[in-house]
Design a protein around this nucleic acid. Structure first.
Length: 834
RNA sequence: GGGCGGUUAGCUCAGCGGUAGAGCGUCGGCCUUACACGCCGAGGGCCACAGGUUCGAAUCCUGUACCGCCCACCA
């Protein structure tokens, strides 16, 4: 299942990222021949979407109340069509291979039926209850919020010390509060029962300032003696702690604010004022009456609405809750025993942390957009009816005056069912049997609690199994400085703009290459430019291959008969294929992308393509070379296809004998073991590099072909066989292969490369002093390395306790260094002699 | 207050027990008929700090310092 995007606008780069990774997995598995489903969907996103539309209305000078519920819902549906349309278009533009025949929306009739079924079942199982509790309330959105929808941050505030005089005329008690306005709803003052300073007041009464109500002093050990004055005012209707204390102590609640945080009739002279306005007035009045003892600056944790940033008000109200503990237990267990695996594994800790301290979930929202709670109240007998089908009459008294609950469900309630509601549940559909549980769920860490945890809880309860076996958690895309992207910062990246500028394939490949698990990717333009160049490189390499396919192409080839470089590139290709498969199996998109990048660019383009030019020029070698080029290009396109679907399909269609689509071509798995060609090939490549380096260091004209001798006491035939491309890559003419070094070699650079010694006569081409300095430097480096290794051997413990192969390796390297130093010394002597 | 990450080349990041790698950037040279979105070559790091374990630590353990994230009812 795709994590369904909210129909609040269009997709951002974060969607592009997570969905790209999903598409890579899906395309890869599909090419491997697996039965794959990636189901597209959209989320109605209750509060977020309603806010968007309300904002539009307010620009027209209207409110949703002006329209009425029905017209307002219609208006949101219109918006949903528009936003959803944009999103679906974007998903297609990104090349995501979703199954469009199964597109779902969380408010589809079928999904709504699932929602109702689950809600009613939970009710029947005693896991849903309705009650009056303190909930997080957004006075601007005018709805309850779950704990997760509140963002708490410390903000600068004050701690006011206020005197509550004793009813009997005594001094009374000083309380400390950060919210003086709520004293209007106080019904007690609490102190710690063992607090020597205050305990004698317990049972006595004090006079509430402003309203002059008489309230009791009570004892309760939830009071922290260290904080403030050790006395706390109790406002049960406006503070969760106080609410609980009041329940324990049997204190009454007085609500003094309405749903928009405007003070109500219980606020006496302050009725009608906004909460913050009232605060100022009350503080001033306390000051005037001499009841304000002191005011201290104080940092207070302030909760704000996740959506609109308004300061959340704890509010006593009637809400619907899901009892989460019974749901959480099996959900915890499923992760503990490995039936569900988090990738990276570390996220399971975060999951456990939250799940083990889970609190009941407030699922009712006072919104108009969403799944209306299927509950009715009988006008005659007040019976609460929760039912799958709209009831016609009260089952208890037969009354027909039923009113439906106006609240809707938290949007995450329906998305929590997504892994099975989208497959037709509660019907036992073939799709459900075939695709539930999902194999993989891929999403961001920001919704582990909101979504992943709920899917697991609800999926296990109602789906009959875990909803998915693996949860892959990707990071959050940041800008090139590692800063979080946001529209307000102006550093956000619009995927469409990137596509316009660099191409979809480049964007996808970049995102994949950045996806190292556990880290947040930093998306900078430089990276995009680099990978756009890679796409271009692939295009040009393909052009080269296609261009050279003109002549005869060997219909098949036996690998052992091929020249070394061809065997080598086929071996490297297989190795890469194995690496890509292994990396993708572990969700290491970065490793897979890097392996492909390195193979295609370095091995294939920089080496093999150049080498092949020599073969293509030779009629006897060309057919086999063409076949190898074609084989490697075809395989590379397949390996790259999940990452860059567009170019790979385009090129693949130009290949001879191509199928209908590369999407369904077999994915290479690189089954063959490394034939050892890499080890043979290495010294030849080193030879070319060594000669190029010498040329560059000596500033030999790059166009000039120079004479080079190679002393080859062994492996002479290999050199002879591969001489043609060696000459062209290193720009050599002639290449003299000899059994032994000449007795004299004046003004000649000598360098050991693998089993061979290179002799590069530099007569008149270089500065002896510069060369002597270079050799000196090289000598120093070798000696330092030798000393380092020798130091290890000085330690008898090393030889005794280190792994034998490590010791052997050290010995071998010393011998190698000795040999190199020997050559180096000889060359230095020769230079001196000349 | 709890928990989780990070600190490696100028930048973004791999590596996670055998004395360091990539991409981009930098420097030098090349328009060598697939590609200048390119080719060839070079330089660049006491792997945050301090202890410990080990024959051996960027890599394991402990602590410290910064940076980031998440959770939490101190009025």
């Amino acid at each position: 299942m795709i994590p369904p995007p909210n129909v609040t606008g269009s997709l951002h780069i974060g969607h592009a990222f997570t969905n790209t990774l999903q598409d890579i997995v899906v395309r890869w598995r599909r090419m491997l021949g697996h039965d794959t489903l990636w189901l597209p969907g959209l989320d109605h996103a209750g509060i977020a979407t309603q806010m968007v539309v309300e904002r539009q209305l307010s620009q027209e000078g209207k409110t949703k109340e002006d329209l009425g519920r029905e017209a307002f819902e219609k208006r949101i549906w219109d918006w949903k069509e528009r936003s959803g349309g944009i999103i679906l278009k974007q998903l297609r533009l990104m090349g995501f291979s979703l199954d469009w025949s199964r597109e779902r929306f969380t408010m589809d009739a079928q999904l709504s039926r699932s929602v109702r079924e689950v809600f009613v079942s939970l009710w029947e199982q005693g896991l849903v209850y309705r009650g009056d509790y303190i909930v997080n309330w957004c006075p601007s959105c005018v709805t309850a919020l779950s704990d997760l929808e509140v963002v708490t941050q410390p903000e600068a505030g004050s701690l006011w010390h206020i005197r509550y005089p004793a009813a009997d005329g005594g001094e009374g008690i000083v309380v400390a509060t950060t919210r003086p306005e709520t004293l209007l709803g106080d019904t007690a003052v609490a102190v710690h029962p063992e607090d020597e300073r205050h305990k004698q007041l317990i049972g006595k009464s004090v006079i509430l300032p402003v309203l002059k109500r008489v309230i009791p002093v009570v004892g309760d050990d939830f009071v922290d003696r260290e904080f403030g004055t050790g006395a706390v005012k109790i406002t049960p209707a406006h503070d969760p702690n106080d609410f609980q204390a009041a329940q324990r102590l049997g204190l009454p609640s007085i609500s003094m604010m309405d749903e928009r945080a405007v003070l109500n009739e219980n606020a006496g002279p302050y009725a009608g004022q906004d909460r913050f306005e009232a605060r100022k007035g009350i503080v001033a009045r306390l000051q005037a009456e001499g009841l304000l003892v002191k005011t201290m600056p104080h940092s207070v944790p302030l909760g704000r609405c996740q959506r609109c940033k308004t300061v959340v008000e704890p509010r006593l109200s009637r809400q619907w809750f899901v009892r989460t503990k019974p749901l959480a237990e099996p959900a915890i267990q499923a992760v503990e025993d490995g039936r569900i695996r988090f990738v990276p594994e570390n996220w399971s800790k975060t999951y456990f942390e939250w799940m083990r301290n889970i609190r009941d979930w407030c699922v009712s929202r006072q919104l108009w957009w969403g799944h209306r709670i299927p509950a009715w109240t009988c006008g005659a007998c007040s019976e609460l009816i929760v039912a799958r089908e709209d009831p016609k009459s009260c089952p208890k008294c037969g009354g027909t005056a039923l009113t439906q609950e106006t609240d809707v469900l938290d949007t995450w309630f329906s998305s929590g069912l997504f892994p099975f509601s989208t497959l037709g549940w509660p019907e036992k559909t073939p799709d459900l049997a075939r695709y539930y549980p999902n194999d993989v769920m891929m999403t961001g860490f920001d919704i582990i609690f909101f979504w992943v945890a709920r899917m697991i809880m609800l999926g296990m309860r109602f789906g009959g199994d875990v909803p998915f076996r693996t949860v892959f958690i990707n990071g959050l895309v940041r800008d090139e400085n590692g800063d979080k992207m946001s529209k307000t910062r102006g550093n956000d990246v619009d995927p469409l703009a990137v596509i316009e500028k660099h191409g979809t394939d480049a964007l996808r490949f970049t995102l994949a290459a950045l996806a190292n698990p556990g880290n947040d990717p930093s998306l900078g333009e430089a990276r995009l430019i680099g990978y756009k160049a890679f796409v271009n490189k692939l295009w040009n390499a393909s052009r080269f291959v296609l261009m050279n396919l003109e002549g005869e192409v060997a219909p098949s080839f036996g690998r052992p008969a091929l020249p070394l470089p061809s065997r080598w590139i086929l071996g490297e290709f297989d190795k890469t294929a194995r690496e890509v498969n292994a990396s993708l199996a572990e969700f290491r998109f970065d490793q897979a992308a890097n392996a492909l990048y390195h193979f295609l660019w370095d091995d294939f383009c920089d080496w093999y393509l150049e080498i092949s030019k020599a073969y293509l020029a030779d009629a006897s070698q060309a057919p086999a070379a063409r076949a190898v080029l074609l084989r490697v290009l075809d395989g590379s396109l397949r390996l790259l296809h999940p990452f860059m679907p567009f170019v790979t399909e385009e090129i693949w269609q130009k290949l001879p004998h191509h199928g209908p689509t590369i999407m369904k071509a077999a994915f290479p798995t690189g089954p063959e073991a490394d034939p050892g060609a890499a080890a043979e090939m290495a010294p030849l490549m080193a030879l070319v590099t060594a000669i190029r380096t010498i040329r560059a260091e000596k500033s030999v004209d790059p166009k000039k072909r120079i004479k080079v001798g190679v002393v080859a006491p062994t492996q002479r035939s290999l050199l002879e066989a591969e001489a043609a491309w060696l000459r062209s890559l290193a720009r050599i003419d002639p290449l003299e292969i000899r059994d032994a070094a000449p007795p004299e070699a004046p003004q000649t650079i000598k360098q050991q490369v693998g089993p061979w010694q290179v002799l590069l006569p530099m007569a008149g081409l270089f500065d002896i002093e510069v060369e002597r300095a270079r050799l000196g430097k090289q000598r120093e480096k070798l000696e330092t390395e030798r000393a380092g290794i020798a130091q290890k051997f000085d330690n008898p413990q090393f030889v005794a306790r280190a792994k034998p192969e490590v010791v052997a390796e050290g010995r071998a390297r010393i011998a190698e260094i000795e040999a190199l130093l020997e050559r180096n010394g000889a060359t230095l002597r020769d230079l001196g002699a000349s």
